[in-house]
Nucleic acid binder design. Structure first.
Lengths: 112, 112
DNA sequence: AATATATACATAATTTTCTTATGCATAAAA
DNA sequence: TTTTATGCATAAGAAAATTATGTATATATT
């Protein structure tokens, strides 16, 4: 990632959600999609992305399929069933996080 | 902090905003205020909070005043002028973060 | 034809930020 | 009187990132 500290801890959520939406993606594709959606405001760094993908795979949340494009290799990742469940949890955590941060920084959102 | 990874990197923003709103607070008071606002969903840990306060003070963003309550000590922190400016920046970063994360996880929010 | 940029993966060293554990001490409640 | 709450602090370790490299092919540019 290349941005403010706030993105620390968000990478897994981002990866899972994009895979949830696009079914199958490879690493470089994920970096480009994030750049596109955030209009260059968030740039995933390879040093963060690849280890994160490996970790998710090791946890059984992603399956990987290696494809040769000409002489080059691509690794396509997709969610496992466990990965899909985890995505739901991570998205709920994000909503909770945003709700709490809004309440903390904006008294208007401190309801009931 | 005691919660999901998402809160990583948010502590400074939280501290600055609460001090911006309350003028002067001490460490323990900040932990209680955060608990109250988030209904126990976010608990600041002392191991994170106190070093963060010391760091902000060292950076010239906070001033400290030591008060004796009976035989006990409290350290009241308040924003310096630089601290007030930094608060504005941090809040803008948070809004940007939330906007980008919303766009990433919710295709509906991907407006030009 | 040569060179720069884009595509595509990977890992190691270091830094940042936090958790967990511990320590000291007083005040209030059970 | 013993637990809980108040109030500060720091050190060891873990987690997650940044930064710096490395390898290699494909495409654009000069």
């Amino acid at each position: 990632m290349k941005s403010t500290n706030l993105y620390k801890g968000s990478l897994i959520t981002i990866i899972l959600k994009l895979l949830n939406e696009h079914d199958s993606m490879y690493g470089y594709e994920i970096t480009q999609k994030v750049k596109e959606i955030t209009k260059d405001e968030l740039q995933l760094t390879e040093g963060a992305l690849y280890p994160a993908l490996h970790k998710l795979e090791a946890q059984g949340l992603l399956d990987v399929e290696v494809i040769k494009i000409g002489n080059r290799v691509r690794k396509y990742y997709k969610l496992t069933e466990a990965g899909t469940k985890e995505t739901v949890d991570k998205l709920a955590e994000l909503e909770s996080y945003i709700r709490n941060m809004r309440a903390l920084v904006n008294p208007k959102f401190r309801l009931e």
